[in-house]
């Protein structure tokens, strides 16, 4: 069975739990959580991830900064990144996509949308 390592970067414990809870529905999913960008960078250096989900507004280091660092890292430049945010305008979306995000999900997220996006990016068949 294929294994998928997900890194969920979100400062809200409620959202972290909801995203992790949803991702557990994917077979072989292993989820590691981080509360901000700095914590996420530490986790990225310790583990290998197949996909990263990050919020934008976070303390210490926001999701966009994290995204730009990740895209410069040869180990993670190709790894799909999904941005999850309450900022739902087209400008916010464009900003995230320009920095190299693969998808943008505005909050409140629908777990079905999240799963569909993850499965599409990782080419996981139902």
């Amino acid at each position: 069975m294929a294994e998928y390592n997900f890194l969920v970067v979100e400062d809200s414990p409620t959202m972290r739990q909801l995203i992790s809870f949803s991702l557990k529905r994917i077979r072989g999913a292993k989820i590691i959580e981080a509360g901000n960008g700095v914590e996420a960078l530490k986790k990225l250096s310790e583990n290998k991830f197949n996909l990263i989900l990050a919020d934008i507004n976070m303390p210490l280091m926001d999701g966009l900064k994290l995204l730009s660092i990740v895209r410069k890292d040869p180990n993670y430049s190709h790894v799909p990144v999904i941005i999850v945010s309450t900022e739902g305008t087209e400008t916010d979306k464009e900003k995230g996509m320009k920095l190299g995000a693969n998808a943008y999900l505005p909050k409140p997220i629908q777990t079905s949308d999240l799963l569909r996006t993850v499965k599409t990016l990782l080419k996981i068949e139902d």
């Binding site: 809200s12 414990p13 409620t14 959202m15 909801l18 309450t86 909050k107 409140p108």
Partner: peptide
Amino acid sequence: RILQEIVINLVG
């Protein structure tokens, strides 16, 4: 704080 998170993130 949790209630605030729920109302922002889950209700929108």
